[in-house]
Design a protein around this nucleic acid. Structure first.
Lengths: 207, 207
DNA sequence: GTCTATATGGCGATAGAC
DNA sequence: GTCTATCGCCATATAGAC
């Protein structure tokens, strides 16, 4: 798995790796901008300076390309999982950090905003991905609120499971408004406001 | 404007009215299911039992059809505007009623969910529509929270403008989760929970 | 007012040369 | 590993018959 054997054994892969990454970056842009259904392999190929056939050598079908794009982004945002390990305080603070970072990478926000809406439909190739993703996120957030409840740091009447659903909804909804009115909506600030209405936590924005 | 003159003056319109409505209903379904970009006039025409050319006689272009669909739905949901007239209590209770009604008409929820995400992109034919719509909704909700603040019925630290943004975000975000997991997410209940964290209000679900 | 026919072009995917 | 060429399909939109 190290670089040791790349000369012969996986030399091909090492060489094409850069091209693959370039394709995935371009595909992310395209799908983010017009969605999966309206996005075209032609446009993706054009952005990396390739023919469509060349592109399809790396990713045999359009759904396969989408799956690869989502896979790649998941590796980047596996912080979700790591956050969940125990501390509710850390998890919630991580949410704010994520919001701050998102505000500087509109492409990723667009991708998930457009795709999650599109994938709502039965038969969409990313539907299962998003179903699993939301389920996992709700579970992680629920554990975070339960942790804080155990410390008596949740406001009276807060139900962990509901708070988890609400927090997720909040993040998604803020993204739509932010994409339409970036100068009017401050995602991180609004999210922090929202969270402090549910739990006793210091969320002064760090990062 | 009554039926009196339909015989000659507007006979044509009265006759085509039904067909137009049928087309708009079909278009709403199609755009809701796959979005505007991926939706096709062919599919819409098929659903009303017409040729594509016949459809284009009523709505000359695809963007024109989308505009007509949005226009029509706006007439239905002009409650928004009426709600705004003064009473913050009435406005927020109206939100819950809307959530309850939405849960029984998935088509409308899908339409706005998918379109608002898609319309995020510069150049989308519905972008201006959604920008105006959100701006108006924020203003109305802000007035509602201000009204309640005047009655000392908002929780300490609640800023009307932020509460308005958050409430809108909440409604949008809940819709995505509800479309993916209808059995797990209760839109009206979660929204009520959310609102009672901000204001002193009785939102026991009526209707 | 609706149709058939057609123009024009973009789409995903395949075959086969280099 | 990338290309050219091509297939077959679907898209929006137009022209003109009925």
């Amino acid at each position: 798995m190290t670089d040791l054997h790349k000369q012969k054994q996986r030399g091909e892969y090492a060489k094409t790796g850069a091209k693959r990454v370039a394709i995935l970056d371009a595909a992310l842009e395209v799908f983010a901008q017009v969605g999966y259904g309206a996005g075209s392999l032609r446009e993706v190929a054009a952005r990396v300076g390739m023919s469509e056939a060349g592109l399809l050598h790396h990713f045999p079908t359009k759904p396969a390309l989408l799956a690869a794009v989502l896979d790649r982004r998941d590796q980047h945002s596996q912080e979700w999982v790591r956050m969940a390990e125990g501390d509710g305080d850390v998890t919630l603070r991580g949410l704010i950090t994520t919001a701050v970072r998102n505000a500087s990478t509109p492409g990723i926000v667009e991708l998930y905003c457009v795709l999650s809406a599109e994938a709502t439909q039965p038969g969409h190739p990313a539907r299962d991905y998003f179903i699993a993703r939301y389920e996992e996120a709700r579970t992680n957030l629920c554990m975070a609120f339960e942790d804080l409840a155990r410390q008596n740091r949740t406001r009276p009447g807060v139900v962990p499971r509901s708070a988890a659903i609400a927090t997720l909804a909040m993040m998604d909804g803020l993204q739509v408004q932010w994409l339409l009115h970036p100068e009017v909506v401050d995602m991180a600030a609004e999210l922090a406001d929202f969270l402090t209405a549910f739990v006793d936590i210091d969320l002064t924005i760090s990062s």
